[in-house]
Each structure stands twice: as C-alpha cells, then as structure tokens.
Simulated scan of single mutants.
Amino acid sequence: MEIENVSKPMTQDAVQQEAAAKVQSMAIRNAEEQGAAAAKLLESAEVITDSNVGNNVDLLG
C-alpha cells in the first residue's frame, strides 16, 4: 500500500473533524448570544400593575 493513498483519507478526516468543530463552536456562540438577548428582553419587559387590565373583553370590536 502506498503511503500517499493512506494519508489522503486521514487528512480529509482531520479537515472534516476540524470543520465540524468550528461549526459547532459557531453554533454554541450563536445560542449563547440568543440566550443573552432573550434574557435582556425578559428583563426589560414591563410588569402590568393595573388590576383592571384584562378583566373585560370586547367581542364586538
């Protein structure tokens, strides 16, 4: 068996593994950013303190 024929698939595997690791890292970073944005949105939400809000529903428009 020639070394060149054996080394190419191993190199391709290494490249595929490295690419997969980078994509996974990007996905994790993206999820962390989205989580931080969601937490910020929840923190900025206004709490309704008026007890009359939502008691009546106008069905006729």
Rank of each mutant, 00 (worst) to 15 (best):
M1N: 02
M1K: 02
M1G: 09
E2H: 02
E2G: 04
E2P: 01
I3F: 13
E4V: 04
N5L: 11
N5S: 08
N5V: 07
V6H: 02
S7Q: 15
K8S: 02
K8Y: 12
M10G: 00
M10W: 03
T11R: 13
Q12M: 14
Q12P: 00
D13I: 14
A14H: 07
A14C: 09
Q16T: 07
Q16N: 11
Q17A: 10
E18T: 10
A19S: 13
A20Y: 10
A21W: 06
A21D: 13
A21I: 06
K22M: 11
K22C: 01
K22F: 07
V23A: 14
V23H: 09
V23F: 12
Q24N: 14
Q24L: 14
M26D: 11
M26R: 03
M26I: 06
A27F: 13
A27V: 13
I28Q: 10
R29N: 10
R29T: 13
R29W: 08
N30E: 10
N30K: 09
E32P: 00
E32R: 04
E32H: 03
E32A: 05
E33T: 05
Q34P: 00
Q34A: 14
G35R: 07
G35W: 07
A36S: 12
A36R: 12
A36C: 03
A36Q: 15
A36G: 02
A37D: 05
K40H: 02
L41E: 12
L41F: 06
L41A: 11
L41I: 09
L42W: 07
L42Q: 09
E43G: 02
E43D: 10
E43V: 01
A45Y: 12
A45L: 15
E46A: 02
V47D: 08
V47Q: 12
V47T: 07
V47M: 10
I48P: 00
T49R: 08
D50Y: 03
D50C: 01
S51K: 04
N52P: 00
V53I: 15
V53R: 12
V53L: 15
N55F: 08
N55I: 12
N55E: 08
N56M: 14
N56V: 15
V57Y: 14
D58H: 06
D58Y: 13
D58S: 02
L59T: 05
L59G: 01
L60T: 05
L60I: 12
G61P: 00
G61N: 08
